[in-house]
């Protein structure tokens, strides 16, 4: 019998002494960073809810509060730029909690030498996105670091929204029998960014889906009081969002491959690059867990909104396989849709 010592992993892949790119992927390494470092040290009852936004009860009102940082490369892409993304991302984190977004902050970390013209374009885009979303950018900060200390521009936005009394959406609320609703095609943002970064040209009009989703969520919440939880599947894609909900609620998630919409351009790129679109980022899509009796009403509300016009019921919450997401293939077999460790890596062959 071997001793416990020899059974230790020879090379732990999540070493504790350096930050790896995988720590920012939305997969297992990201979760470990939050669970092992930030949460134990920052612990409090509001943070412990672990939603995309914190809901704060202050006398007279309920507020949602969130923050997000944006480090996208390239800065400008088809369908948006880092500025519009910084507004949409934070608005969406508020919207997923059912909040009406009200105020944003904007923090800029700029690299010495960054072109003023680009900063102007980005700022104009942020202003337009905030105007369209009906939110005010009410405070901000700028820091400049020496050349090489940042990559052009990083933006942080924080957001405050108002949550209606009695509304409580949480990733811990999913129950067996609930339906999984997805608001449209998956992977548009991630593949657009990848294609521009890698210089892969597509003969198509594929563009980022970056959009503010709070009006869509308002329509959905008006149609039902039985929405358990909503998430915007950004980095890590639909797979990571559903794995999080499955783990938090202690339920299984059974997806139906044929009900998940993926554009041909996205499928084609994923086929070529060896990627799975279920793990590719979206910036204008949401997934909602809805009680079975209200699933159709919520779906109809989504279909009436332009941002939900391709919505579908993509699967069901199950009591079996708790903590796992599975997908039923068109062949009638099923497989696990696991949480990835880090980013998806292109395969050799």
């Amino acid at each position: 019998m071997a001793s416990a010592l020899t059974l230790a992993c020879p090379v732990p892949l999540a070493p504790k002494d350096r930050i790896l790119l995988g720590h920012g992927s939305g997969g297992k390494l990201s979760a470990a960073l939050v669970n092992d470092l930030f949460l134990p040290l920052f612990r409090n009852p509001v943070l412990d809810c672990l939603e995309d936004q914190a809901t704060l009860s202050v006398p007279g009102s309920r507020l949602a509060f969130t923050t997000d940082s944006f480090v996208v490369k390239p800065l400008f892409f088809r369908g948006g730029d880092i500025g519009s993304l910084a507004v949409h991302g934070t608005v969406n984190d508020l919207a997923m909690g059912g909040a009406e977004p009200l105020f944003l902050s904007a923090g800029f970390i700029l690299e010495e030498g960054f072109e003023m013209e680009k900063l102007r374009r980005i700022t104009e885009s942020m202003a337009a996105a905030a105007r369209d979303a009906g939110v005010l950018i009410v405070t901000g900060d700028t820091k400049v670091v020496e050349r090489g200390g940042a990559d052009g521009i990083f933006i942080n936005t924080a957001g405050i929204g108002r949550v209606r009394e009695g509304l409580s959406l949480s990733a811990a609320n999913a129950r067996p029998g609930d339906r999984i609703l997805v608001s449209g095609t998956l992977g548009d943002h991630g593949i657009t960014i990848l294609a521009e970064r890698e210089g892969i040209g597509f003969d198509s009009d594929l563009r980022s889906d970056s959009a503010a989703l709070h009006r869509l969520t308002a329509d959905m919440l008006a149609a039902s009081t039985q929405i358990r939880c909503m998430r915007d599947p950004t980095r890590g894609g639909l797979a990571s969002s559903l794995n999080e909900i499955a783990a938090r609620s202690g339920v299984g998630m059974a997806l139906n491959e044929e009900s998940i919409l993926i554009r041909d351009e996205v499928r084609g790129a994923c086929e070529m690059l060896g990627l799975d679109p279920l793990y590719v980022a979206n910036e204008g899509k949401l997934v909602a867990i809805v009680a079975p009796e209200d699933a159709d009403a919520v779906l109809q509300a989504m279909l009436r909104n332009p941002l939900g016009r391709n919505a579908s019921i993509a699967g069901t919450v199950t009591a079996t396989n708790p903590g796992y997401v599975t997908i039923r293939t068109s062949f009638g077999t099923s497989r696990i849709v696991d949480m990835l460790s880090g980013d998806q890596l292109p395969r050799i062959c």
Binding site: P10, V11, L13, P15, R18, I19, L20, L21, G22, E198, L273, S341, G342, L345, P346, R347, I348
Partner: peptide
């Protein structure tokens, strides 16, 4: 190629080398 970066050798992998300042790049 990307999927070699995560493969552990006897001590460490290429991702760790990259995090420690090595210039490791993924190509197709």
């Amino acid at each position: 190629y990307g999927d070699m970066l995560r493969v552990p050798g006897s001590r460490t992998d290429l991702f760790q080398v990259k995090a420690e300042g090595g210039d490791v790049r993924i190509a197709y």
